[in-house]
């Protein structure tokens, strides 16, 4: 079994590494990793373990609207209660978390792809290209990413209102929010990668590659980028937490995911309307889910930053 042997060998390699040691010895990081893994698994398995599909309007039954959760005097048919449309909160939270994670990962990947490419080009080309790209990053870093994402969303809404884009906003809410977040977060990656390129490009291995005729793009991707990936991964992890929070905030403000396809932020917004009548559960359970998810990802990010920092070893 060649596969078995290579897996065993890979595991030996991982379990003997410094990073695994620092992971294993940090109890809070292991806890955070377990929590994150459980949340990820639950979200992947959402269609299997959910009571209903919360995005299917046929499942909404106003007859069972506003049922409280079990620990609030409700029944076991809706363990976390229902919202104002009769949507099961447990299923809605599973699907909502999945949506938050999809948005988070997609926007981080977009920002990373954009930022890494711009950083590589900027650092390698130098001169005017570098100056223009880095000033653009500077200007964008003047503003909080949240504000930029909000503005991009408003621009798309304007284009839809002017019928430049032939879509209904609700139908394209997911790609719009991924695009807004991705375009808001690229400068940090670009700056980090550019800095790494400036350091690496003068080193002997790069000169050697150039002399034997390796093309610039290949040098950048295959030789320089792997040496700059550590900090990029750290930024990406912390960025994931920020992206999830930002998506939730935009949805809460009513400019993110629509009520027909609620993410965690949308669920909290729905619950906010019923807060004054004391019906707390629609807000609290997605709020706790959001906080736990963000806290776990943040803890992993903090650990990764320290583990990859040779000064702290």
């Amino acid at each position: 079994m060649a596969g078995g042997i290579s897996i065993a060998r890979a595991w030996r390699k991982v379990s003997g590494s410094d990073i695994y040691y620092s992971f294993r010895t940090s109890r809070i990081t292991v806890a955070a990793a377990i929590v994150t893994a459980i949340i990820f698994a639950a979200c992947f398995a959402a269609p299997l373990i959910a009571i209903q599909d919360p995005y299917d309007p046929a499942n909404l039954d106003l007859g069972v609207a506003m049922r409280p959760p079990v620990f609030w005097g409700g029944g076991w048919d809706f363990p976390l209660g229902t919202d104002d449309q009769g949507r099961d909160m447990y299923s809605a939270i599973l699907y909502g978390t999945r949506l938050s994670l999809i948005v988070g990962f997609a926007s981080v990947l977009l920002a990373m792809a954009l930022g890494v490419t711009i950083g590589l080009v900027s650092g390698y080309a130098g001169g005017a290209t570098d100056a223009v790209l880095m000033r653009a990053a500077d200007v964008q870093l003047t503003f909080p990413a949240f504000l930029i994402a909000l503005t991009l969303d408003g621009i798309v809404r304007g284009l839809i209102a002017q019928k430049v884009l032939p879509f209904d906003h609700d139908a394209i809410a997911l790609p719009v929010i991924v695009l807004s977040l991705g375009l808001s977060f690229w400068p940090q990656y670009a700056r980090t990668v550019r800095g790494a390129v400036l350091v690496e490009r003068t080193k002997d291995y790069v000169n050697a590659a150039r002399i034997i005729g390796v093309r610039p793009w290949r040098i950048l991707w295959r030789h320089i980028l792997p040496n700059a990936m550590g900090p990029v991964l750290v930024i990406a992890t912390i960025n994931l937490a920020v992206a999830i929070i930002t998506e939730a905030t935009l949805s809460f403000l009513g400019v993110g995911m629509p009520k027909t396809q609620p993410s965690l932020g949308t669920l909290i917004q729905i619950g906010n309307d019923y807060l004054s009548s004391g019906d707390l559960w629609i807000t609290v359970s997605p709020g706790i889910m959001l906080a736990v998810l963000v806290l776990a990802v943040n803890l992993l990010g903090d650990w990764l930053r320290d583990a990859l920092n040779p000064k702290l070893r």
Binding site: A241, I245, A248, T249, F252, L253, I268, G271, N272, L275, L280, T283, G287, L290, A291, V294, L295, N298
Partner: peptide, 18 residues
């Protein structure tokens, strides 16, 4: 304070209102 960083602003606001 770690929990405070992980709770989004709007959730804190809602909890305070409640």
């Amino acid at each position: 304070s770690l929990v405070g960083v992980s709770l989004p602003t709007f959730v804190i606001g809602i909890l305070l209102i409640y």
